[in-house]
């Protein structure tokens, strides 16, 4: 490939104790995309994120980051978790600087000092997340929202090809949450980051994303009604940028869209066939196996 996609996932299965969590997932993400991944609980969205992160390995299939196998966690992707992203024994500045200091040989020696350039860059990043004043503080002295902003700055200093976020605003109160959503959008627009953002909040996903992925275990295929199914991407929309004005969340079409999503992806009673998924995003693709592909009505050769 001359221009490898940032993330390329093909035919990926993840099985725990014989139970499929991810079931033949295909996904391709282009540079600069803000991907928001939503889905009902138990659909495997965190598992999918951990596969991209390298924290877990797929049972089958391939996960590529910029054309290279994902392997184990490394600087090719940044991560912001819901909690525990910061190191409690380091000041805010040192937390942000950590990635740069670790790149120096013998960095683990306690007296290894940061290079002045790195220090300036870290301070600059802290200014951009509006925490320049808090540089000397320890993480426990910050509020939850401030901690997450530091965690974002900490990941950004590595300039990762892909920035992964696992419900980063899940533990915050609604006001702080909205603040950080706007902040993240501004940051994304300025830095042209490739984002992969996992959330259980549909509204948040629709507000932030330029691409909305719905992962769900509620669908049908030719494997029989009761066959255990893992999560699949059942919908893949291209969203028009909402801008950073949160007023859009109150508009009717925004609400209707969310309502529709809730039915197609989240309601166990409404199941679509694998051939009828809303995969309208240009990057979207689907490789179905023969037993998935047959319509329920058609004569099935039985499960192998």
């Amino acid at each position: 490939m001359s221009d490898p996609k940032k993330i390329h996932i093909e035919d990926v299965y993840k099985v725990y104790d014989g139970r499929a969590v991810l079931d033949n997932v295909d996904l391709c993400v282009s540079a600069g995309e803000f991907c928001a991944l939503v889905g009902p609980s138990g659909c495997g969205k965190s598992t999918l994120l951990r596969l991209i992160l390298g924290q877990e390995q797929p049972s089958r299939g391939s996960v590529l980051i910029e054309g290279q196998a994902a392997g184990f966690p490394d600087p090719r992707r940044g991560i912001v978790f819901q909690r525990y992203s910061l190191y409690p024994h380091l000041t805010v500045l040192d937390n942000v600087l950590l990635g740069r200091r670790l790149a120096q040989p013998w960095s683990w020696l306690p007296w290894s000092k940061p290079r002045p350039d790195d220090r300036d860059e870290a301070m600059d990043l802290l200014e951009r997340v509006r925490l320049g004043d808090a540089a000397a503080k320890f993480p426990h002295e910050l509020s939850g929202g401030m901690q997450q902003r530091v965690a974002i700055a900490q990941a950004l200093i590595m300039k990762p090809p892909v920035l992964l976020m696992d419900e980063p605003f899940g533990a915050l109160d609604p006001d702080t949450r909205e603040d950080l959503q706007v902040f993240l959008l501004e940051l994304w627009e300025r830095e042209r980051l490739t984002m992969f953002f996992v959330t259980h909040d549909l509204e948040e996903a629709c507000f932030l994303g330029t691409r909305l992925l719905v992962l769900s275990q509620y669908y049908t295929d030719a494997r029989g009604a009761d066959a255990p199914r893992g999560g699949k991407i059942v919908a893949d929309y291209r969203l028009s940028p909402t801008g950073t004005a949160t007023a859009v969340k109150r508009r009717d079409e925004f609400k209707n869209f969310i309502h529709e999503l809730r039915e197609t992806g989240f309601d166990p009673a409404i199941r679509r066939h694998v051939k009828d998924f809303d995969l309208e995003h240009p990057d979207s693709f689907q490789t179905l196996t023969a037993e998935e592909y047959r319509r329920d009505g058609e004569k099935s050769a039985g499960n192998p």
């Binding site: 992160l53 966690p73 600087p75 525990y84 992203s85 670790l102 900490q154 990941a155 590595m158």
Partner: peptide
């Protein structure tokens, strides 16, 4: 999370 994050920040096992 901390251990995974340190790997994404480029930490070797020794570090």
């Amino acid at each position: 999370e901390q251990i995974v994050k340190s790997a994404t920040l480029g930490a070797s096992a020794t570090a």
